[in-house]
Amino acid sequence: MSMPHRAVRRVEKAETLDRIAKPVSSMVKRVVRPRRVRNLFSGTNLGHPLHPMLTDVPIGAWTMAGLLDAVGGREGEPAADLLVTTGVVAAVPTAVTGMNDWSDTLGSERRVGLVHATANTAALTLYAASLAARSRGDRRKGKALGFAGLGVMVVSAYLGGHLTFVKGVNVNRTAWQRGPDEWTPVLAAAELAEGEHRTADADGVRVLLHRTDGKVHALAATCSHMGGPLGGGTFDDGCVTCPWHGSTFRFADGGIVRGPASTPQPCYETRIQGGRIEVRVPPAAAPADVVEDRAHRMRRRLPTRTPAS
């Protein structure tokens, strides 16, 4: 295990951080509770989280400012100052969306996220001080503060990468779930009364079944946001709400009504055949080879017509 990896593992186990993380997380949750706020900060209407996209701006701006400070000479000073300013301004919405995402974490992810946020705050403070020094004409101090901020930012970026790619924070938890491409029986129709729900296995994937207005709907039973069990959620007005973080999905199409989820819930076609509920992946969502295979089998089942004599 590498030295950076060992260091971040120690942060994961530092339970003393919970004394700070828990109350701060609770405060953030209260602030982002309104649906419009939650959807905006979570990137609900984008199709993926908003925070990772916003990080590109301050990271890119501050990195290029550091390069110009190092080798740009006098000609590069105006551009370097503009890039520092851009990074400072962009860091604010980046931090806000990051806190929104962090408030849903627990345990080791929350501890690493707290250190990540602290490092980001330190980097922003250093760059703001650098900008102030530059505006006073103290170029040497401005550069020194900028280089210090760049170093802290690199550490923070490493922690952010660890949260995403090692811990899987805010990664779509249904990305590798396919479900059956052919009609697959999952439950006896008599076992699902009007207004009731059940979870069942469909070709190795857990699906959530719900009957409303006489129609059976089926969604992936694992919440796309953080893997919460939708079968243990609440059901109202044709929607299911995850019991973990409150993401709300429509049964009709898996669409998101309320974040923090940003990826729609996989939705399956249903039918009742021989007294059993059957499900399959919709043709529009199936890979091209599966769609062609279905069409080929349908053509084989059609009776052959002979020309009229």
Rank of each mutant, 00 (worst) to 15 (best):
34 P>H: 05
288 A>G: 00
139 R>A: 13
215 K>V: 15
38 R>C: 15
108 S>Y: 09
284 A>T: 11
35 R>G: 12
189 A>K: 08
103 S>E: 14
82 L>G: 15
238 G>L: 08
271 R>V: 02
230 L>W: 07
218 A>D: 07
171 V>G: 04
74 R>E: 15
27 M>W: 11
248 T>G: 09
129 A>D: 04
119 A>V: 12
7 A>I: 15
274 G>C: 09
126 L>R: 07
54 L>P: 10
175 A>H: 09
125 T>M: 10
135 S>Y: 05
101 D>L: 02
75 E>M: 10
248 T>L: 10
120 N>D: 08
135 S>I: 03
224 S>W: 02
268 Y>P: 00
289 D>M: 02
119 A>W: 12
45 N>K: 12
292 E>C: 00
281 V>M: 06
142 G>A: 13
271 R>H: 07
144 A>C: 06
157 A>G: 14
24 V>P: 12
8 V>T: 14
77 E>N: 01
193 A>R: 07
61 A>C: 11
213 D>V: 02
67 L>I: 15
17 L>K: 05
218 A>W: 04
201 D>W: 05
251 F>P: 01
297 R>M: 00
126 L>I: 02
120 N>R: 07
150 L>D: 14
84 V>D: 05
145 L>Y: 03
97 T>G: 06
124 L>K: 04
13 K>M: 09
8 V>W: 11
248 T>A: 04
256 I>A: 10
138 D>R: 13
32 V>S: 13
221 A>T: 07
